Simulated assay, not measured.
Amino acid sequence: MTRYVIDVDLDSCIGCHSCAVVCKQENNVGLGTYYNKVLTIGPTGAYPDLQMYYLPVSCQHCDNPECVSVCPTGASYKREDGIVLVDHSKCIGCQYCVMACPYGVRTYDQGRDKGVIEKCTMCAHRVDAGDVPACVFHCPGKARKFGDLDDPESEPSKMRKEKKTHQLTDVGNQPGTSYGLDKFTWQGGE
């Protein structure tokens, strides 16, 4: 079975925010709304031994997404391939999923879609056409790894074998994204 993920090699992320910018362009995301955010972690330590890295955060496409379980209309759902989406025709804008998301990556859009929830779709339209998500395609550091986690030859599977990986804090939702980090001390959760 296919289980798509986007993993991030933090040792390769240069903090350029290309993922956030191209996501806004690809998905027509309005001002003040982001599906991808790039956080600066650090600096930590004492001079001259300081550490700092960039942490791109978007929907984790969890194995057990709480946002799906709290949705009263079934608008939030998880596809068989692991991609978590929102069906805008069913969304009533109650924001239960926004409150349930432990990563703060869902947003209420009052504008163009008139009161629905928006989030990273892993560029499902591109994936369905056989392409990779826009943030992966345009990452200049090649930090973003997209693929089928059930395929041992996929880029995420290889990264998880080769690097020490971490996930954002798991509160029972089992986040799908892993972050590879060998050079620095992990500060992003568990």
Rank of each mutant, 00 (worst) to 15 (best):
residue 71 C to N: 07
residue 93 G to K: 03
residue 58 S to P: 01
residue 118 E to F: 07
residue 88 H to C: 05
residue 25 Q to F: 06
residue 92 I to G: 08
residue 85 L to I: 14
residue 104 G to P: 05
residue 125 H to D: 14
residue 90 K to Q: 11
residue 47 Y to T: 09
residue 81 D to R: 12
residue 68 V to H: 03
residue 65 P to T: 01
residue 117 I to Q: 04
residue 74 G to A: 08
residue 64 N to D: 15
residue 48 P to M: 01
residue 67 C to Q: 08
residue 44 T to C: 02
residue 94 C to G: 07
residue 27 N to A: 12
residue 43 P to E: 09
residue 85 L to Y: 13
residue 63 D to H: 12
residue 40 T to A: 13
residue 88 H to I: 14
residue 126 R to C: 07
residue 62 C to A: 09
residue 33 T to R: 12
residue 71 C to D: 05
residue 115 G to S: 06
residue 114 K to F: 13
residue 128 D to W: 03
residue 52 M to E: 15
residue 29 V to L: 04
residue 32 G to F: 00
residue 31 L to M: 11
residue 102 P to T: 00
residue 30 G to K: 01
residue 84 V to G: 13
residue 95 Q to Y: 03
residue 55 L to M: 11
residue 123 C to I: 02
residue 91 C to L: 12
residue 91 C to I: 10
residue 52 M to H: 13
residue 105 V to F: 00
residue 59 C to R: 05
residue 118 E to N: 12
residue 23 C to L: 09
residue 73 T to A: 09
residue 91 C to K: 10
residue 66 E to Q: 15
residue 94 C to D: 10
residue 81 D to P: 05
residue 54 Y to S: 07
residue 120 C to M: 03
residue 77 Y to L: 15
residue 55 L to Y: 06
residue 78 K to D: 05
residue 46 A to V: 10
residue 127 V to M: 01
residue 24 K to W: 00
residue 70 V to T: 08
residue 57 V to A: 02
residue 121 T to Y: 03
residue 103 Y to C: 04
residue 33 T to M: 12
residue 102 P to H: 01
residue 86 V to A: 09
residue 28 N to K: 09
residue 94 C to N: 06
residue 96 Y to S: 15
residue 112 R to Q: 10
residue 25 Q to R: 06
residue 24 K to L: 04
residue 97 C to G: 03
residue 78 K to M: 14
residue 70 V to C: 11
residue 64 N to S: 13
residue 93 G to C: 04
residue 63 D to W: 09
residue 43 P to Y: 05
residue 95 Q to L: 06
